[in-house]
């Protein structure tokens, strides 16, 4: 991993079209600004990981549970 030291208002460039600016530093929090073309996707890492973990849980859903669910929905309909 490349590690750089930056101060507030300093920035780094990734390629010639993505700029990451250190906007503010307060205690253990760093505020970053990201200037990037619209076609670049930027996400917090934890969002990405949460979706990945949810996919893993979703893949454990069994065909039987889907059948149980259908029975449940039918019961609701018939009430």
């Amino acid at each position: 991993m490349l590690i750089l030291t930056r101060k507030v208002n300093d920035s780094i460039m990734i390629d010639d079209n993505i700029e990451i600016v250190v906007v503010d530093i307060k205690g253990d929090q760093v505020k970053l600004g990201i200037k990037a073309p619209k076609n670049i996707s930027v996400h917090r890492t934890e969002v990405f990981l949460e979706i990945q973990n949810q996919n893993i849980k979703a893949a454990e859903s069994s065909p039987e549970s889907l059948k149980n669910l259908k029975d449940l929905l039918n019961k609701k309909k018939n009430k």
């Binding site: 969002v47 949460e50 979706i51 949810q54 996919n55 849980k57 979703a58 454990e60 859903s61 069994s62 549970s65 889907l66 149980n68 669910l69 449940l72």
Partner: peptide, 19 residues
């Protein structure tokens, strides 16, 4: 949307609208 159905709790099923 990908659906998650908890094993013993199908009524708690959820859909993933973020991904």
């Amino acid at each position: 949307s990908i659906v998650t159905i908890p094993e013993n709790n199908p009524e708690k099923m959820t859909a993933n609208l973020q991904g």
